[in-house]
Computed example of a mutant assay.
Amino acid sequence: MTAATPDYRLLAALLGVVQILTWGSSFYLLAILAPPIVQDTGWSAFAVTGGISIALATSALMAGTVGREINRRGGRLVLCAGVGVMILGLVALALAPSLPVYILAWVVIGAAMAATLYEAAFSMLSQVFGGEARRAITSLTLIGGFSATICWPLSALLVEAIGWRGTCAAYAGLHLLVTLPICRFGLPQPAVKTPETAEATDDTDDTAPIPWRDPRLLAVAIAGVCLVFIFSAMAMHLPSLLMAQGHTLAQAAALGAVIGPSQVGARLIEMLGGGRHSPVTTMVVSTLCVAAGLLSLSLSAPAALCLITYGMGLGLWTIARGTVPLGLFGPKPYAATMARLALPVLTVSALAPLVGLGMLPALGPTGTLLALTAIACVPLALSLFLWRQRPR
Rank of each mutant, 00 (worst) to 15 (best):
A235V: 11
P391G: 13
G64M: 12
P211Y: 10
G260W: 12
S26H: 01
L61E: 08
V324H: 02
P344D: 14
S278Y: 07
I319T: 09
D7G: 14
T141A: 06
M243G: 01
L140G: 02
G51T: 10
M271V: 08
D214H: 12
C183P: 07
H237D: 06
L328A: 05
Y334I: 04
F129V: 00
G163M: 02
M359Y: 08
T179V: 12
S44E: 09
A55W: 03
I182G: 11
A81V: 11
L249D: 11
L299K: 09
A304H: 07
T368I: 03
A191T: 15
A303D: 05
E69G: 06
L217I: 09
S53K: 10
G89E: 01
T49M: 08
A45D: 02
T282A: 08
V192A: 07
A112N: 01
P331H: 06
G64R: 13
L297Q: 06
I52E: 02
G64C: 09
P325S: 05
P188C: 12
R76Q: 10
V85W: 03
Q189R: 14
T149M: 15
G265L: 07
I143S: 09
D40Y: 03
A172C: 09
P36L: 05
L363C: 10
A31L: 04
V264I: 15
M271C: 05
G24Q: 02
A253R: 04
S53V: 09
I319N: 03
M243T: 14
A303T: 07
G330C: 08
T116W: 01
S25D: 07
L93P: 00
S383R: 07
A96P: 04
G256M: 12
L217Y: 06
P239A: 07
L288Q: 11
I52S: 05
A291P: 01
L316R: 05
A169D: 04
M243D: 02
T179L: 06
A136Q: 01
L93V: 00
L343P: 08
L174A: 15
L104V: 14
S296V: 10
A362V: 11
M234V: 15
R184I: 13
V285F: 08
A221G: 13
L30T: 01
I32T: 12
G166Y: 02
M1C: 09
L77N: 15
A94F: 00
P181A: 09
T179C: 15
T58S: 14
L93W: 00
L354N: 14
S155W: 00
G82Y: 03
A335Y: 03
V108E: 03
G358F: 11
T197M: 13
L249H: 12
A381Y: 06
W317Q: 12
P35V: 02
T287F: 14
G145Y: 08
L99T: 03
S296M: 14
R184A: 13
L314A: 15
T368D: 03
Q19M: 15
A63Q: 13
S262D: 07
P325M: 05
D202L: 12
T318Y: 10
L384T: 04
S298V: 08
L33K: 02
V159A: 00
Q245H: 14
F329R: 04
G273Q: 10
L180G: 07
S232A: 15
